[in-house]
Amino acid sequence: MGGPARRRLALCGGVAAVAALAGCGLPPVQPWEKGVLARPAMSFDADRLENALAEHIYASKEAASGGAGVGASGCGCN
């Protein structure tokens, strides 16, 4: 399979996975059952500074980067 076709497949696969996760049926969690979910450890962006620093360092040492968000990253780590 050619390069662009594989890439398109990868992206479509990713989008499909996201949609599947969103659509999967589960008993809904009621608002009064969400006490634990409010904790910082259970969130995905509790410490923005820490996450940003880690992402910056790994991106400058490895070939892969990103994934968690889009950002005005602005780093000269070609």
């Binding site: 989008v15 996975a17 969400k34 995905f44 968000g69």
Partner: peptide, 29 residues
């Protein structure tokens, strides 16, 4: 960069997040 994602609360003790993103860089790399 383009990103598309979903967060799902699965139970009172579980939360999942899936993000798919695509990026295109052009110029001096």
């Amino acid at each position: 960069d383009l990103l598309f994602g979903v967060t799902r609360v699965l139970s009172s003790n579980d939360v999942l997040r899936l993000d798919a993103s695509a990026s295109r860089a052009r110029g001096y790399l």
